[in-house]
Amino acid sequence: MFADKVAIAHKWITAGHSVTFVLRIVGVSRSTYYYQLTHEPKPRTTSGGRPATQYTYTHDGSKVSDEQVKEWIMNAVAGDGFAYGYLKLTYVLKREYQLVINKKKVYRLCKELGILKQQRQIKSKYPRRLARNRDIMAPNQLWEVDIKYGYVHGEDRFFFVRSYIDVFDRQTADYHIGLHCEATEAVDTLKRALWKRRLLDQSVLPVIRSDNGPQFVSLAFESTCEQLGIEHERIPPRTPNMNAHIESFHRLLEDDCLSRYEFESYELAYKAVVDFMDYYNNRRLHSSLHYLPPEFNKQHYETGLTPKTNVKESLRLR
């Protein structure tokens, strides 16, 4: 780098320009300039750095060939170190064979042996937005989501019910019943709920509030919320009161449906949950909604009717 700058400076200085002016322009000191002119650079004998040795020392000063070190590495990989990377293998060599060796050399030896483990893919992380107090004055402003477990006695297995509930009108925007509980299903249910409420093409979408379950902290769910322009907030650990409406709904699901029957098959459990959802959304009287079932939304848009309870107070951290 300095040699290139000195060569440029020398070209302009020999052309008659001021030494001080040229050196200030190229950023080279006067002493460096004259040193480079009077000293020939030494040719490099290697490609860079010290040449690699073919042996390693032990703590008592003995030399161990790299071929022996490679054999020890393979023995470790064939035994308890089958899942170790080069860093842990370095500690194995130090402790079991008293080698004076660093991780860089072990990396090189592992690379020569072709046993380097693939690096883990770093997943995108999304900032966690904590749930906060909100004034809920209309439908589709805040949805709460959670998962409820049911049991099929006749088949001795569990099934899952994932529900999105609108905090304002207490209706389930949509739900999913299945034998698996994966992030992709949470995404599909969310999109279906938005489609049912004709919100997919709207600029303002509901805030989604959830706990810290693996489905809701997953890359699939977070990236979908980001793509749709949805704000996803998560309640702090051990604060189910901040998801009070979905917790209350799932208690009703447990008391009025899941605990009433001993299901002999998954099909019977599925039908019972579907029937309960239809009853809850379309016929059940809600005391907080002036004992109105689906007519509540109609009267809200016509007359401005709001729930009897103070939604803001019910969402306050306790």
Rank of each mutant, 00 (worst) to 15 (best):
N243E: 02
P307T: 01
S31A: 12
I246G: 00
K103W: 09
L116K: 02
S47F: 10
R316N: 07
P139Q: 08
D188W: 14
H153M: 11
C110Q: 03
R44A: 04
V274I: 11
Y301E: 10
A76C: 10
A78R: 09
T32L: 05
H300C: 09
D188T: 15
N297L: 08
L89D: 01
E233V: 05
K105H: 05
S287F: 03
N102F: 01
P127S: 13
F221N: 01
H17D: 10
I101R: 02
G154M: 03
L219I: 14
L113C: 11
H59W: 08
H180S: 09
T38I: 08
E247M: 13
S29G: 03
R132H: 08
L292E: 15
I165H: 05
L228I: 09
K105N: 04
A173E: 00
E264C: 07
T303A: 12
V204N: 12
V100Q: 03
Y126C: 00
F159T: 06
R162Y: 00
A9Q: 14
N281C: 15
M1Y: 11
T239Y: 11
Y261S: 14
R44L: 05
E226L: 05
K105Y: 06
S29Q: 02
I8E: 04
E96K: 13
I115K: 01
V69D: 01
R197I: 02
Y55T: 11
A15Q: 06
V217T: 15
F160R: 07
L285A: 09
Q141Y: 02
I235L: 15
I147P: 02
L109D: 00
D166A: 03
M74L: 14
L285E: 08
E67T: 14
P41A: 13
L305G: 07
V6L: 11
R120D: 06
R316T: 05
H180M: 00
F82V: 15
A3C: 04
Q54I: 05
S210A: 06
P214C: 08
D80W: 07
K298H: 09
K312P: 03
K105R: 11
C181A: 13
R318L: 03
G304P: 01
L228N: 06
P294H: 13
R283N: 01
E233C: 06
A131Q: 13
T309S: 11
C110A: 04
N102L: 02
K123W: 02
V217K: 08
F160M: 03
N102V: 04
L37P: 10
H17P: 02
T32E: 05
D174E: 12
R198A: 15
E222H: 01
Q54G: 09
M137I: 13
K11W: 15
R24N: 13
P214S: 15
H180K: 04
S314L: 15
D278Q: 13
R192G: 01
K70E: 14
L190D: 11
L305N: 04
E233L: 06
G114M: 07
Q121Y: 10
I208R: 11
H286P: 09
H250G: 03
E182V: 13
Q118W: 07
D255W: 07
Q118E: 14
L87Y: 06
E264G: 13
R44T: 05
Y151G: 00
R132E: 08
E231I: 12
R134E: 12
L292I: 04
L190N: 05
G81I: 07
D146E: 05
T224Y: 00
Y164H: 10
G154L: 09
G304L: 00
E262V: 11
A52E: 10
N212P: 14
T224C: 00
